[in-house]
Computed example of a mutant assay.
Amino acid sequence: MRLRHPDGSVVHLSYCTNVHPAEDLPGIRRQLSGVAARVRALLGADRLGVGLWLPQPAAAGLLARPSDLAALREHLTVLGLEVVTLNGFPYRGFHDEVVKYHVYQPDWADAERLRYTLGLAEILAALLPDDVTEGTISTLPLAWRTGWTADKAAAVMANLDAVAAGLRALSRRTGKVIRLGFEPEPGCLIETTPQAGALLGDVDHDYLGLCLDACHMAVGFEEPGAGAGTGLPIVKLQASCALEAPPGAQRALAAFDEPKFLHQTRSAGGFTDDLGEALAGGLPADESWRVHFHVPLHADPPAPLTTSAPYLGGLLRTLLGGPAPLTRHVEVETYTWAVLPDAPPDLAAGIAAELDWMRGRLASLGLKEH
């Protein structure tokens, strides 16, 4: 969906398709025809934005067969869908039985991450609507924090220089500006937005910047305005909510301790890589916990648990409530519907409810559907 900011600029709202387990092009097309098209109908929207996740095999196939890429663009148009952003964080296998730490591979020290990302940029430049000249791609915050060496740091910086040069060349060739947003995440090399400012301060800011994930920032107990003070452009916001437990009520989180995804957990006094470690005594029980478990934006979990929806509201006010938007791409990214303790039977209805919730929050900031 497109919304008009009070300053006249267009803000794009989409939902991220990494919620779908499709790993190949036929599966992706089926999810678009099924779930995404139904979400658009439920919202009564003329156009629905989708933040495509293209696993590496699917992306490679589209690059190898331009006719398939042209057909995907036509398929999106027929369904009333549009793509201005891609999620380039998971490389492949995001819905394997166990994902956990695998999601951070390959990292930005690996030339394959560079090739994959530049390939996504080529695809996005071809998929952008005719009246849109700027697209965005979100990516991992360089690497998981362990195993960091001087050689790895040098390889990362070389690849960042190369991806910026590739995006600049793509812009000259196509007239489309594709920008890459690094997404701080607890436990990674870049955990917080201040760390991003320190590690990415010398990169090409015309093409490289930040993707702010509201869940990650909440788990890090960051101030909502922290991302705006780094000196880095905020190319994209991922609208997401973390799970919260008040002091003494953490046993209620046991229902969310599932085996597929990594659920980093933090309190004022500590951090664990996963929720199970925290529940086993890794964090003090007399403090509030925040958990990296993307929960639906519009719905409260069973009491006494809550979510970081108020934090997301503050971040939206920071980024979009001022005289000009600090980002123009907003992507709802709740990829955990299938692993919720009470997974809803109707995924499309759930996604539509989230987008409607987000549409209402943006309207309260003065944005109007366009």
Results as ranks from 00 to 15, higher is better:
113 R>V: 10
232 L>G: 01
279 L>V: 08
287 E>W: 02
304 P>Q: 00
168 R>I: 05
116 Y>Q: 13
303 A>M: 00
148 W>E: 12
9 S>W: 01
288 S>I: 00
362 L>P: 01
360 G>V: 01
26 P>R: 14
84 V>W: 13
325 P>M: 00
298 H>I: 06
241 C>V: 04
300 D>H: 04
323 P>D: 14
166 G>L: 06
97 E>P: 07
165 A>W: 05
262 L>K: 08
356 D>S: 10
122 E>W: 08
303 A>K: 05
167 L>P: 05
83 V>N: 13
233 P>F: 06
53 W>D: 10
369 E>G: 01
339 V>M: 07
176 K>L: 08
53 W>K: 08
179 R>N: 06
166 G>C: 11
162 A>P: 08
6 P>G: 06
80 G>Q: 09
261 F>W: 13
205 H>L: 08
141 P>E: 06
221 F>P: 00
155 A>Y: 04
356 D>F: 00
358 M>G: 00
258 E>N: 09
47 R>Y: 02
45 A>R: 11
256 F>H: 08
115 R>P: 09
83 V>L: 14
346 D>M: 03
282 G>P: 01
368 K>G: 01
52 L>G: 13
43 L>Q: 11
302 P>R: 05
12 H>G: 05
349 A>M: 00
230 T>Y: 04
267 S>R: 05
45 A>Y: 05
353 A>Y: 00
364 S>A: 15
245 A>S: 15
78 V>G: 08
317 R>D: 09
173 R>A: 15
73 R>A: 15
183 E>S: 09
292 H>E: 08
18 N>W: 12
134 E>M: 10
71 A>F: 08
343 A>R: 12
127 L>W: 10
55 P>C: 03
352 A>R: 01
169 A>T: 10
294 H>Q: 10
74 E>S: 14
346 D>T: 12
107 D>W: 08
180 L>P: 05
150 A>R: 14
52 L>W: 09
114 L>N: 07
106 P>D: 07
170 L>G: 09
20 H>L: 13
36 A>H: 11
116 Y>L: 11
334 T>P: 05
335 Y>T: 06
48 L>C: 13
178 I>F: 07
351 I>E: 01
2 R>K: 14
8 G>V: 02
252 A>H: 15
80 G>S: 10
367 L>V: 03
281 G>T: 05
181 G>E: 03
345 P>T: 10
137 I>M: 07
68 D>C: 06
41 A>H: 13
160 L>F: 06
93 G>M: 02
22 A>N: 13
268 A>L: 12
125 A>N: 12
308 S>V: 00
168 R>A: 15
62 L>I: 03
43 L>R: 15
221 F>A: 15
354 E>T: 01
91 Y>C: 09
104 Y>A: 12
306 T>V: 01
357 W>M: 01
212 L>S: 06
332 V>K: 03
30 R>K: 15
366 G>Q: 04
209 G>V: 09
297 L>W: 02
66 P>C: 07
47 R>F: 07
191 E>G: 14
79 L>T: 03
99 V>I: 03
224 P>I: 08
110 D>P: 12
289 W>E: 02
352 A>S: 04
7 D>C: 13
32 L>C: 14
196 A>T: 04
112 E>A: 15
86 L>V: 07
88 G>R: 12
19 V>N: 06
70 A>H: 12
224 P>V: 06
246 P>M: 03
51 G>T: 13
273 D>A: 14
